[in-house]
Write a protein that binds this DNA or RNA. Structure first.
Lengths: 188, 188
DNA sequence: CCTCTATGGAACATCAGTGTTCCACTGGGT
DNA sequence: ACCCAGTGGAACACTGATGTTCCATAGAGG
């Protein structure tokens, strides 16, 4: 019988470590493994049992990030409807990623690497070109800039959400409002 | 005769180290002092002669950041004209800060600390409230969010500028266009 | 009761970054 | 020629993070 990494005791501690890693590394990319194991309520020895290397831990975080990125993408149904609306749905879905956004933004995990394997990057690209074609996105903006606005706005939204001074629903509405205004094609 | 830290040989190497620190720390906040001294074409010993501590080096970087932030603010004349136009002038001025934007955004230097001493934070706040009062800024957005959009867009613009795939004038135009669209009050 | 699995802790060697000291070199100014 | 401020490099001790090994313990299940 092979060991299942997703269920049972093993799976639970593995997940605890992974979650703690995301949380701690988002707050401080240079955090020590000891800080991570503490946050996971686990001995440093145990952490090394699951992830022999710091590199392997980071790799696992990236893989997890890719998985959740893919989930968010499919939940957002990026291939449906007008391009602008797809991007706004992406905003809402990606905001759920929480600290992972910080990790992707600070470069602890690379958006390209972990977004590519699950076809996320491609889906986002497609939504942008579709939006430029169907006239819902501002033709004066380049695809690269469009996506940049999406990510940086997302990071801003998560920052506001995290420090908790603004109620979540207001963050969402300000985020969607801002992105829609910024990216929408001007009225004909 | 007291030593002048701004001119002569001393001033020049001091500036070289400071510039290198900004450049290197922007690329990697956890960079070693050796990397910084290498980038400054200076021995590690010399670096320690000017900044005994890593902390003192960072403090000096923050002070320099504050100074240049203040310069940019006064150049942008934040207290003149409609609020929205003031913010757009701030965008253009702040974009000149280059790698300092990365440092402020990644938290290596704190915007609050080094922006406060030169009255920059206050000037920006004032421009926002003025813009909300004179009807040029979108009243549905909070002052905190307005400033957040400014900073994150600025960071996006600098990122595009830095990797050099987009010509500078295009970055500036996309930046100003995006920020204006995002923050402007809707047409009555 | 015994066993097996998962764990935490102690101890250890290793390594990189830091901060310090000391010495030798250079170039400009007298 | 001399002096001297400025510099770079070598060497050192110290610290904190890392990765490893070994052992003791707790708990679920036979």
């Amino acid at each position: 019988m092979t060991v299942d990494l997703e269920t049972g005791t093993r799976g639970r501690t593995r997940k605890a470590i992974l979650d703690a890693a995301v949380r701690v590394l988002a707050a401080d990319p240079g955090a020590s493994l000891g800080q991570i194991s503490d946050a996971a309520d686990v001995g440093r020895t145990t952490l090394h049992r699951y992830f022999p290397d710091r590199a392997e831990l980071v790799a696992a975080v990236m893989q997890e990030a890719g998985r959740r990125l893919g989930d968010a993408a499919s939940r957002a149904r990026l291939d449906e409807g007008p391009g602008l609306d797809a991007l706004l749905r992406a905003c809402q879905a990606l905001l759920q990623l929480g600290d992972l956004l910080t990790l992707m933004f600070t470069g602890v995990v690379s958006i390209e690497t972990c977004g590519a394997e699950h076809g996320f990057a491609q889906a986002l690209d497609d939504a942008c070109t579709r939006g430029l074609a169907d006239g819902t996105l501002d033709p004066r903006l380049t695809p690269s800039w469009l996506q940049g606005v999406l990510w940086s706005s997302l990071y801003l939204g998560w920052s506001e959400l995290r420090d908790g001074t603004t109620p979540p629903h207001e963050v969402v509405s300000q985020l969607l409002l801002t992105v829609r205004k910024a990216l929408a094609a001007p009225a004909a």
